[in-house]
């Protein structure tokens, strides 16, 4: 008798379980997180690539802390690089500009932290003009300028390495090519500017009147 009851309840319980778990007819995952976990593949087995979409972007490699991806090469994108083509002498020895004459780089207005915290020399070196330099004066290549930014912006740097900050170029598929800091932020004025939205939906206004 007891056996019978046990068997019956078991059947009911199993039955209920089968009916209630609606997802189970299609696959055996209760949530999409379970599905992701179960179906994850090792990256070597992924065939699809986004190479064709970034072919014409010159890149350099980022490889630090176990992260590896490509970032756009920078030096060839800077109009007046090499700096030493003009800066043949240290700054102090350069010709002083006359009254009414515009100084070189007159168009650069620094809006990055405050004047007490940063000036040109915080990043640009007076010694080797073709390189940047860190807070402790070690040289940093223009192509790897993220090393400069990450001195202060540690949290952003961490998110950028992982992929939560910044922007992947071309495609989602490997190889990963991500914008480096200066591709989105003007280093002299890094904040995004206010502007008008690019469109306004006039139909929506009519519909909702």
């Amino acid at each position: 008798m007891i056996q019978k009851i046990v068997v019956k309840t078991l059947i009911i319980v199993i039955g209920l379980f089968v009916i209630s778990c609606k997802h189970s007819h299609e696959n055996n995952y209760h949530t999409v997180t379970d599905k992701i976990e179960a179906k994850t593949v090792s990256p070597e087995n992924l065939t699809i690539t986004s190479k064709t979409f970034n072919e014409n972007i010159k890149t350099v490699k980022f490889a630090e802390d176990g992260y590896e991806f490509l970032i756009p090469e920078r030096k060839s994108q800077i109009t007046s690089y090499n700096c030493t083509e003009c800066h043949t002498q240290p700054i102090e020895k350069l010709k002083q500009n006359q009254v009414g004459e515009k100084a070189a780089h007159w168009n650069i207005k620094l809006a990055h932290a405050g004047v007490e915290i940063m000036n040109c020399a915080t990043c640009h070196s007076n010694g080797n003009m073709d390189n940047l330099h860190s807070l402790t004066n070690s040289e940093i290549d223009f192509n790897y300028s993220y090393k400069l930014c990450s001195q202060c912006h540690q949290k952003e740097f961490k998110d950028w390495k992982g992929g939560a900050h910044g922007k992947q170029l071309g495609g989602w598929a490997p190889p990963r090519l991500s914008n480096t800091c200066v591709n989105c932020h003007n280093p002299h004025k890094p904040a995004f500017e206010k502007r008008w939205p690019v469109r306004f939906n006039t139909q929506k206004v009519k519909e909702r009147q």
């Binding site: 992982g162 490997p174 990963r176």
Partner: peptide
């Protein structure tokens, strides 16, 4: 951010 949820190295997975 867009990507492949089954690729453990994708940005979306890191997020």
């Amino acid at each position: 951010t867009f990507g492949n949820l089954l690729d453990p190295k994708s940005n979306i997975r890191w997020i």
